[in-house]
Design a protein around this nucleic acid. Sequence first.
DNA 1: ATGGTTAGGAACCAATCGGTACAAAACACA
DNA 2: TGTGTTTTGTACCGATTGGTTCCTAACCAT
Lengths: 195, 195
Amino acid sequence: MARPREFDPEEAMDKAMGLFWDVGYEEASLTELLAAMEITKGSFYKAFQDKQSVYLASLDRYNSKVISGTVSYLGDSGQGTGRERILGLFAMVADAVKRDGDRLGCFLCNALIDKAAEGGEAESKLQAMVHRLENAFFQAVADEGSVDEKEARETARGILSAYFGLRVLGRAGLSSEMALDCIRQVEWLLYRVKT
Amino acid sequence: MARPREFDPEEAMDKAMGLFWDVGYEEASLTELLAAMEITKGSFYKAFQDKQSVYLASLDRYNSKVISGTVSYLGDSGQGTGRERILGLFAMVADAVKRDGDRLGCFLCNALIDKAAEGGEAESKLQAMVHRLENAFFQAVADEGSVDEKEARETARGILSAYFGLRVLGRAGLSSEMALDCIRQVEWLLYRVKT
DNA sequence: ATGGTTAGGAACCAATCGGTACAAAACACA
DNA sequence: TGTGTTTTGTACCGATTGGTTCCTAACCAT
């Protein structure tokens, strides 16, 4: 019936997410965004609404791709004990730092700091993601068994804050040995529920 | 000899720091910055260099005011054991969250995420602050005695990441009970070196 | 009072911001 | 090969960006 679009909207959204992830909302100018998505202004405004809606869509995308991934990795769908899965997740983060010196960090964590998010849709999306992550840690801790719910909740929250801290330090360009030290502390946190 | 300035540069810098702390570098437009500092463009460019140099000066200011404050609080100049001082610091952060729902967070932490900082002067300033904080935690842990240096270093780094994580969550608008749970985990981290 | 010197404020600057309008280009179907 | 429909690229929009210029107002020393 008509001319087909020359780009894949999913791919373009991935690239948009990548840019917002890297530099945040305000720092990403529309020009940079278009360059990253490899489309021109006309195509952009025909296929999407505006910059902000693409940002919100990026948050959703991060939620359904990355967060869902780690949540299911932490969930009982994964193998090993809850403790092993938690440490496995941290090891993956440390690995990313070690390999390519991950300066990207965690989009969720970055967006929590980004003031562009405050108030409005973005904030509730972010809060939801934080809770999803907290509950995933909680599940993994609780799976370790022999621990009352209150203690498991506390531990999960401690691990959550350690996780965000590690991602902040990662973006700050920490050494890989520092990451390993942080992980050893998480390991220690888990001793509490293991014994 | 001449007309005296009508504003206190120190006060103005404080207000500038407050704005950058709150919204970051890019999100703070020059107009907002001038409004915050309560001076006009002419005075600004006569007294300071440009926006970026004021940002860098804000980082220095945060270092010499806030970071130095917490470092000396953690240092042996404070009272109580190292453990008590560390927990006291965390309690203060939790209190700020509880009282006025601190959505400001930690300027250092925010700036680490802010991409405006990457590369150049800002980054090295930030790294220096991170190390200062890490060493302060290390001192406080080591003061607890009966712990070898390697273990103290690990613990200090775990506490550092927990600290940043807590500040991220604070800016995200966490509940005060969540903050208390995080602190209880730090307490547990310190059991390792106490016994 | 007056002259020298500096601060303050507004006008102005090019560049860029996010966003719109529209014409040309590319396809599907006839 | 048209013809209708949609995408694409570009020119353009007013508003705002960080920054400069320059004139006037205000002050101190004489």
